[in-house]
Lab assay of single mutants.
Amino acid sequence: GLEHMADEEKLPPGWEKRMERSSGRVYYFNHITNASQWERPSG
């Protein structure tokens, strides 16, 4: 619901949600550090 939507907005600075086109899996990418990970970043 709306709570989940708001929660997605609160990623740490630099992080954004991305989708891997080949598999459709969602991952997280940090455009500041060029880091990427499957787990939702905390902090």
Rank of each mutant, 00 (worst) to 15 (best):
E9G: 09
E8S: 10
V26I: 14
L2Y: 14
W15T: 00
P13V: 07
W38A: 06
W38E: 07
E16P: 00
G43F: 15
A35Q: 15
I32Y: 10
S42V: 12
R18D: 01
F29Q: 02
Q37G: 02
Y28G: 00
R18K: 10
L2S: 14
A35H: 14
Y28K: 00
E39I: 05
N34L: 12
T33S: 06
P13L: 08
S23V: 03
R40Y: 10
R40Q: 07
A35K: 15
S42A: 09
S23F: 03
F29T: 03
E20T: 09
Y28F: 05
Y28N: 00
E3G: 11
E9P: 09
P12I: 02
E39H: 08
E8M: 06
W38K: 05
M5D: 14
R25S: 04
G1A: 12
G14K: 01
S22N: 12
G24A: 04
Y28S: 00
A6C: 15
P41L: 01
G14T: 02
W15G: 00
G14H: 08
I32V: 09
N34G: 15
E9D: 13
E8R: 09
L2R: 13
A35N: 10
R18Y: 05
E3I: 12
Y27A: 01
R21Q: 15
A6M: 11
G14D: 05
H31A: 11
A35T: 15
G24K: 07
S23T: 15
G1K: 11
G14M: 04
N34F: 07
N34P: 01
G1E: 11
P41V: 01
I32N: 08
E8Q: 10
E16T: 08
I32K: 07
A6Q: 13
P41A: 00
L2W: 15
Q37N: 02
M5E: 14
M5A: 15
E20C: 15
S36P: 03
I32L: 11
R40S: 09
E20N: 08
I32F: 10
R21H: 14
D7A: 10
G1D: 14
P13R: 06
N30Y: 04
H31V: 15
Y27D: 03
W15V: 00
S36L: 11
Q37Y: 03
E3S: 11
S36H: 12
M5Q: 12
P41S: 01
K10C: 14
L11A: 01
A6W: 11
S36W: 15
L2P: 12
S36Q: 10
N30S: 04
P13Q: 08
Y27H: 03
N34H: 13
A6P: 13
K10G: 12
S42P: 08
P13I: 08
R18S: 02
I32G: 05
K10H: 11
E39K: 05
N30A: 00
R40N: 07
M19V: 15
S22G: 12
W15S: 00
P41W: 00
H4G: 12
H4K: 12
K17W: 03
L11Y: 02
P41M: 01
E9Y: 07
P12A: 04
M19K: 09
S22E: 13
E3P: 13
P12W: 03
W15R: 00
A6V: 13
G14E: 05
R21F: 12
P12L: 04
E8P: 09
P41T: 01
G14N: 08
I32M: 09
Y27E: 05
G24Q: 06
E16N: 04
V26H: 09
Q37H: 02
T33R: 04
S42E: 12
A35I: 15
G14S: 03
